[in-house]
Nucleic acid binder design. Structure first.
Lengths: 174, 174
DNA sequence: ACCTGAACACCGTTCAAGT
DNA sequence: ACCTGAACACCGTTCAAGT
């Protein structure tokens, strides 16, 4: 006897993102998600393999949200860097989980496209990948350190961001 | 009636580092550490406040190990970057936990000193902090992406590292 | 003083039984 | 076909009782 679905994969992932942002990765439990979508924990296993898969799905959704933000932001490195930073500041846990949970190849590839395009415009085809990696590595590391509070030696963090952005774009343009 | 100590904080942290490296952060449990040091889990609470404090202590020990490596490596940015990378490749989980667990101020400050010194030599006092942040952000982000397998668009990762290193040192020297 | 077993709360996961 | 309660394994943490 069929039963009407009481939840969906999409709803589970959406609930997971909210819980992650409010309670951190430790709070992103099967039980917490089940409660939020109005179901018992065992029911989640119909749509998600296990807790690790749940985390991966939330990570993928975060990457997709970031990609969309980057795609609509603009096409130059400067604009992309600022869009990246504002995304990370709005979704600190969503940003973090992108690099701590195993994320699918496809999502990462899609998110790289805007950067690769912008880098190509600056350094040409041959070094586009290297330049994109230089740029994203800096931005990712900077945001990670900013969010984790690693910048505690004083100084103006905003100025440090502008300094890095300026040095990098200048180096790549030269 | 006093009892001879059957373990120590140092032994607990050392065991924690080994378990972290072999089983990842999820495997770094109170029970696993207790078993390895030959004690029951409740006994650990005499030396460590809770699981979070255990992770923080392991993170601090990793930072200290990195700092020592950097201090003995050399004093220019190029050498520091390579030392940083080799440390991360030898202790991937130890590297990761430095940025995911709350680490004490002092350890972070000590680890920044070698970088700050090298940066000062290149850009002078006024921009030393900004330059050190640019450099560590890039290196940290790059290693994080390398270790998490985020570099999946082909290309030579070693070459990308050399490219970034070259562009950064050139930008800061100019 | 430190160590332990017992106990409790909480989570992940499986599965037989419900509808 | 999905949902649930019951059950089991495992972990974090506290605490009274041992030495």
């Amino acid at each position: 006897m069929p039963t009407p679905d009481r939840t969906s994969f999409e709803q589970i992932v959406a609930a997971g993102r909210e819980i992650l942002e409010s309670d951190g990765p430790a709070g992103l439990t099967m039980q917490a998600v089940a409660t939020r979508v109005g179901v018992r924990a065992p029911s989640l296993y119909k749509r998600v393999r296990d807790r690790e898969a749940l985390h991966a799905a939330v990570a993928e959704a975060s990457i997709d949200a970031l990609t969309q933000r980057l795609e609509t932001a603009g096409s130059d490195l400067d604009t992309l860097a600022r869009a990246y930073r504002s995304f990370a500041q709005e979704h600190p846990e969503g940003f973090r989980i992108m690099f701590t949970s195993a994320s699918p190849h496809d999502a990462l590839t899609r998110s790289a496209a805007p950067l690769l395009h912008a880098a190509t415009a600056v350094v040409g085809d041959e070094h586009a990948l290297d330049a994109a990696r230089l740029f994203t590595a800096w931005a990712t590391g900077f945001l990670q350190m900013e969010l984790s509070g690693a910048f505690r030696l004083g100084g103006d963090v905003d100025r440090a961001f502008e300094y890095g952005l300026h040095q990098l774009t200048r180096a790549l343009t030269a």
